[in-house]
Amino acid sequence: MRRQLLDFWVGLFVAAGIAALVFLALEVADLTHLGWRGGERYQVEAEFSNIGGLKVRAPVKSAGVTVGRVAAIGYDPQIHKAVVRLEIDGRYRFPADSSLSILTSGLLGEQYVGIQPGADTETWQDGDRVWLTSSALVLENLVGEFLLGRGGGGDGAR
């Protein structure tokens, strides 16, 4: 009798704990929306001359839809460029001449990798390397170019 009551409470407690874990996984961390996590996926590598503030695990988007994540970021000392490895959901295939760019969501938001699909009939395969990239817009460079360009124009006119 007393033993059953004790079991009841412990059972309730363990169930509540597991329910909390499930809630954290599904509702808070949104494991369901990363359905591709469990499914097939492929990786491509892209060379960028500047990745700005891109971070590992940043989203990879095409037409605004998240299709993958940045798996790793490294530096290739031979070509002096950043090498970004992208992990993309296997359900989405992109033409081999698609291009990549590093974009910013909003003015101060996080940076992500955008895919502009090309027109090739061939598609990216696992392990491919992509050269068609445009770098992140670095605010300091932009400001510098703007100032230099304006100053130079002024000199020429005089």
Partner: peptide, 19 residues
Amino acid sequence: FWSQMRAAVDFRLDVVNGL
């Protein structure tokens, strides 16, 4: 409230590490 949370909280890095 929920969508911002879901976008930022990672299961392995945040939830699993916390546990």
